[in-house]
Amino acid sequence: MTITAEKPLVKIEGLHKYYGHHHVLRGIDMTVNQGEVSVVIGPSGSGKSTMLRCVNLLESISAGRISVGGQLIGYREVNGRLHDLKTKEIAAQRREIGMVFQRFNLFPHKTALQNVMEAPVHVKGQSKAEAQKRALELLDRVGLGDRAGHYPSQLSGGQQQRVAIARALAMEPELMLFDEPTSALDPELVGDVLNVMKDLAKSGMTMIVVTHEIGFAREVGDTLTFMDGGVVVESGDPREIIANPQHARTKEFLGRVL
């Protein structure tokens, strides 16, 4: 992997999230450079998924700023005051950010091919022929070229998740978010999905990956962030942190999952 320049693509500054009185995120700062794979781990309830969902505004931002590619997410800043973006403007920002969900969330009434074609045709306005050609290439890339006509219910969990990755890639995003992409899979299906993600990382895609796969973090991650209780406890080189965690909580967590 070659990172030519340390160019920050994602900047999260002082991010807080409240659900009513429940303070879920308590001031998150994080930077992801162009072409980097940033892996986020932590116990359930630590706020790592919420943090990820804030990046494409599936959760509103209670306090702090997130910017992707230098563009503030969810707001426009005019004379130091934040103005909410319109639904259409938010949709435009989301087009640059692909997301892969724990539960795949494929459209069950559409075939694998139609799932991948949906957004290029109906959001970007690509012609059907063009979108289909590109969708078939993407399905090939995730190893499912022969499953294009299958409905999600005819695919295994691992295959569904790879279609979901192809669907997100079809929009040619500059950033990919993965929300525990292998947590809902049978153990023997995890490898195929991780391999697709590894290939994607090698191709230079900027990725934020919330996961429990420590092996993936060690092998593919450029940075590893350990979150607990809504804060970043530790962050740095994955291999160093996994081999030699500095904080007691990190040590305890890694001891339980390794």
Partner: peptide
């Protein structure tokens, strides 16, 4: 999750 997946793709509300 269906609504979220479609939103994440940048689809407009009506679509």
């Amino acid at each position: 999750g269906q609504m979220e997946a479609a939103e994440a793709l940048g689809m407009a509300k009506g679509k």
